[in-house]
Design a protein around this nucleic acid. Structure first.
Lengths: 259, 259
DNA sequence: AACGAGGTTTCAAATTTTGAAACAATGGAT
DNA sequence: ATCCATTGTTTCAAAATTTGAAACCTCGTT
């Protein structure tokens, strides 16, 4: 084959992803329309996904939705994530300490994926959700991770993902962001002042593994007024400490390169 | 093709599943050995799964583990499960009321899949885990669901899945189990007396959807002595009520067939 | 330095996959 | 009741992809 990826597998993953994104079950032709595939091809792939439990056909019509096998694989992997287990008590402490929303994310393909989220006692409408993605350029956790990367790699990510403007405060100039990342690299505390979500302020810090690579980040977020009242700097310091402790538990050696 | 399922897709799912079951990342040849595939075939499929984010290659060796895309699809679907959202407050109430472990399961391919689990304040070692499967013939939730099915369908499941003996109390005779299911069908309360796990006693009840089909079950479990002390019948009655309320919320009409 | 094992790449042959076409089913309009 | 449009399902020849044997590369061990 001329392409280097397996076409049938790519098509199958396309089907799974379009079902994941759909608000309701989809029929064969609709799926085919959405991903530009012939309905007989879609039908055959769906038969296989159904047989294996990854997709399920509704009982009273001919529409399909994701099946429990996806949950099984996803949650099994999710439950085994070392960083999530190690970080859990620290996240609980931070949530209790500040009574604000606390997150753990992992970087993935130039974005961050929310892996853990501790709610506060307040009702705060916030878009983050476990399993969901967010951009790096305008989130505290994203910037915390970017700040640990070589400039060339950062530029590559910004080029590939762009720098969409979510609020009036979103930084959309790569050079400007890279200047900010230099400061974050020093302090290891990333601040996000309503850059991703109006009214929400956030502090984030990276987590390193035994080899010295940033493999995640944690954050504390809340409404601007309340976070400023509690002191973003104080929150940042405790966050940084928690980040260091999590990193140490994962084998990161702060007194020299472990590579 | 002579077979009715897409071979390349089946092979790819085999790879994902073997990675999910592995306790640690696997190399190309090892994966090939475990699922009887040529290493060059495995390699090409892995390249595609990596490209799409479903598998990740470790940075410092040539071993592979599941990627975050699996988590993303699985959790997105998981979060959208209507029955899970509807049942959540009832599960919380039951957990608070009895201070024992509470479960929500969905049936899938002759087994049950744990969808929600509320822990108690006690330390109880129990095998159930969200995302995991369990047999139907010797769990309270499984029997609750089986009791709503026609006898022929139950026999089919018992034939396909067998009736493995987990404890001295596990019922392994289909006729005996079917007799018990008749009682459960009447009372809508399934009891499990150490049939799945020694020392653990459990009560379960089915959940119906708008069309009258059992689409799930809930249960309360704990150590035999404590559960008996609290009264399995009392627990069963409250459970049954909760099950009915959840079912009603899902559109089940108790005063006649909605089909 | 040599060897063994695992990973990666190539490409001709083998096999699978594809999608056009036909048929079946369903729901809506008349 | 009939007709029509749309979607779902099935078939199978042609097209295209996938496969895996073979070769090469890398790395760790002896």
């Amino acid at each position: 084959m001329t392409e280097k990826y397996v076409q049938t597998l790519e098509r199958s993953l396309d089907i799974l992803e379009v079902l994941a994104q759909a608000e309701e079950p989809l029929g064969v032709t609709e799926i085919g329309n959405r991903i530009s595939l012939h309905k007989s091809t879609v039908h055959r792939i769906l038969q296989t996904l159904c047989y294996r439990g990854y997709v399920e056909k509704e009982k009273n019509n001919e529409r399909y939705h994701l099946g429990l096998k996806i949950v099984e694989l996803g949650i099994r992997f999710f439950n085994d994530l070392e960083i999530r287990k190690v970080a859990a008590p620290f996240l609980a402490d931070l949530a209790k300490s500040f009574d604000e929303v606390v997150h753990l994310v992992l970087p993935d393909d130039g974005e961050v994926v929310y892996i853990d989220k501790r709610e506060s006692s307040h009702v705060v409408s916030m878009r983050s959700k476990v399993g969901r993605r967010a951009p790096m350029h305008c989130t505290a956790v994203g910037k915390a991770i970017l700040s640990t990367m070589p400039e060339e790699e950062v530029r590559q990510i910004l080029k590939e993902k762009g720098m969409p403007k979510y609020t009036a405060y979103t930084v959309t100039n790569p050079d400007e962001l890279l200047e900010k990342l230099k400061v974050i690299k020093q302090t290891r505390i990333a601040e996000e002042q309503e850059e991703n979500e109006i009214g929400i302020v956030c502090a984030g810090t990276p987590i390193f593994d035994y080899s010295g690579r940033a493999i995640g980040a944690i954050s504390v977020s809340g409404p601007a007024s309340r976070i400023r009242e509690k002191g973003l700097e104080r929150i940042g310091q405790e966050l940084k400490q928690a980040g260091e402790q999590i990193s140490a538990s994962l084998g990161f050696n702060y007194f020299g390169s472990a590579v």
